[in-house]
């Protein structure tokens, strides 16, 4: 279940960032103290914000908002 969340988040990031997306996800997880192999639904909010922020410097505000929105949606 939790590994599934990781996969979905990686997919969202890779769709925008390609190969580098996977790395960004596990790095942000580590920075937040979340085990990348074990992401819980309650981690999603922080993670979405963190990944949105990274996205801002690569793809701009529109993509940042999109990524943040899509990740938050995974909580439901």
């Amino acid at each position: 279940m939790s590994r599934e969340l990781t996969k979905k988040i990686q997919e969202i990031m890779s769709a925008e960032m390609g190969h580098i997306g996977v790395f960004i996800v596990s790095k942000q997880c580590r920075d937040l103290g979340v085990d990348p192999e074990d992401i819980e639904p309650e981690d999603l909010n922080d993670l979405a914000k963190a990944l949105g922020k990274v996205m801002l410097t690569f793809g701009g505000s529109e993509k940042a908002r999109k990524v943040e929105r899509e990740i938050k949606k995974l909580a439901n």
């Binding site: 390609g18 190969h19 580098i20």
Partner: peptide, 22 residues
Amino acid sequence: TSNVLQNDKFSDFTEFLTGLMM
């Protein structure tokens, strides 16, 4: 050009970015 990130043809470049990020 940021559009290249999703493009497989530029995988060397995204790898370069990943390396920097590491």
